[in-house]
Design a protein around this nucleic acid. Structure first.
Length: 420
RNA sequence: GUGGCUAUGGCUCAAUGGUAGAGCACCUGGUUGUGGCCCAGGAGGUUGUGGGUUCGAGCCCCACUAGCCACCCCA
């Protein structure tokens, strides 16, 4: 038993998983380049107030999931629980509104939420995040959704489902919530305790309830899409039109309620198979009031967050193999101290020639060095001993067919390059 | 925060309440300078932690901790 253990909900990503991560990050890079999004990186730590203000005081994230602590200066800091607030802070703070509008950005990195871990949920997890700032046209909503879909298709996912909804705006949302409260209050006695609490605290959540007793009530519950103001209704219908134009299948799911206060109008989720109970692989929406809330001028925005750990789970479940890691295909072994010095130099000569090579250290038996070459999966083992040094040559053993060739040291880079 | 299940070498797992084992992986040897396969050997454990029952606990009981899964909620 080792003395130190991982912090709850945090994981080591070991070598078997790294090819998945490399594959995923490569596909992400290709996708954002294709769509013309630019990378932005913001700090992992922010003033706690940014999230309290941005994400919303009553949200679960702020209320019970944030990693909070006091800096040595006495400032209250938070490990970022999501990307959007920090990126919007950076947008306002750096005057990015002077760049061409809309501003399309992406990022990736760790986020932290103090939740109980389970399949597809970790206290430190990694998201791929997209934001488009400064444009209210639903065509960018569609672009953002499509970017995610495009990526997932390139990753090889199948069985994807897109769900969309509108969550209204400050003009129509409160009136709808009022209607919802009235409806469920009339049936209060049939509501299970959990949903009674939701009715008090966050009525929208009842729509998402899994309580059996509540299901019959949901069928006749007022739907937000019937209570949108003209502007929101128009936005939502154009969104659907553009999605149809793109020929992306979607389902309007009036139950989608995102957990952050800043969402307005469009909200959406993409779900995938093989993820257990946490099957949302991408979730996002529009936040037209957030930048103003954070002290900027009124600026619309839309984006999504997408959990990369969940990609890995889905890829494995779907049986999608990422490309193997490009390990060195040449080892440099030696016999004796004199040869060792030549071998050290030779390994670096090969690196300089762009040939992946690995020195086999430790003065272990020659047998052990060859064994190491085999375990690495190398194609060639270069052998240097007194005989070779005298002749200015190396013995090159082909590990696939066990043939051996003497090659002049000076010719070795070219000789190998031709055969790898 | 709540519930269910679990906890034995690095990994996967054995061990009627009576001396903790195997396979894989690792190291060494079987070759004076030759890998894979095979053979032999070696190292590696205070059985998650702390209590209790018992002549005796890896095994039974309690608590704690951690992990997994689910709820809440979310990516």
């Amino acid at each position: 038993m080792t003395k130190y253990k991982r912090i709850t909900g945090m994981r080591d990503v070991l070598f078997d998983d790294q090819p998945y991560w490399r594959f995923i990050l490569n596909q992400i890079q290709k996708t954002v380049d294709l769509f013309g999004y630019r990378r932005i990186d913001t700090p992992v730590l922010e003033q706690a107030g940014l999230f309290i203000r941005g994400v919303g005081e009553g949200t679960d994230i702020v209320e019970k999931e944030m990693y909070l602590f006091d800096d040595r200066d006495g400032d209250q800091l938070a490990l970022r629980p999501e990307f959007t607030a920090g990126i919007m802070r950076a947008y306002v703070e750096n005057g990015l509104h002077t760049l061409p509008t809309p501003l399309r950005v992406w990022t990736t990195g760790p986020l932290f939420r103090h939740e109980r871990p389970q399949a597809g949920r970790y206290r430190q997890h990694t998201q791929f995040d997209i934001e488009v700032i400064g444009e209210q046209d639903p065509a960018v909503d569609v672009e953002v959704i499509n970017l995610a879909w495009h990526l997932f298709t390139n990753l090889g996912f199948f069985g994807l489902r897109l769900y969309i909804n509108s969550t209204g705006c400050p003009n129509c949302k409160p009136a709808y919530i009022q209607k919802l409260v009235e409806y469920f209050s009339a049936h209060k006695d049939t509501l299970p305790p959990d949903d009674q609490m939701r009715l008090q605290k966050n009525p929208l959540r009842i729509l998402d309830s899994k309580e059996a007793a509540t299901q019959p009530l949901l069928a006749n519950a007022p739907r937000i899409t019937d209570h949108l103001c003209d502007e929101c209704d128009n936005h939502f219908s154009r969104l659907k039109t553009y999605l149809q134009a793109l020929e992306r299948p979607f389902t309007v799911d009036y139950k989608i309620v995102r957990g952050l206060d800043y969402y307005t109008k469009t909200v959406f989720e993409i779900k995938a198979d093989g993820l257990g109970s946490q099957d949302t692989i991408c979730g996002g929406g529009r936040y037209d009031g957030l930048i103003q809330e954070l002290g900027g001028r009124p600026t619309p925005g839309i984006g999504f967050g997408s959990g990369i750990e969940r990609y890995v789970i889905a890829l494995k479940h779907l049986g999608i193999e990422p490309p193997a890691e490009p390990l060195p295909r040449v080892t440099v072994s030696y016999l004796g101290e004199a040869a060792k010095k030549v071998a050290i130099k030779l390994a670096e000569t090969l690196h300089g020639a762009g040939i992946g090579a690995q020195f086999t250290p430790g003065d272990r038996s020659f047998k052990a060095q060859l064994k190491a070459a085999n375990r690495l999966g190398a194609s060639f083992a270069i052998i240097l001993g007194d005989d070779e040094i005298q002749a200015g040559q190396a013995t090159v053993r082909n590990l696939n067919d066990s043939s051996q060739t003497a090659v002049n040291l000076a010719d070795l880079p070219d000789w190998l390059a031709e055969r790898l």
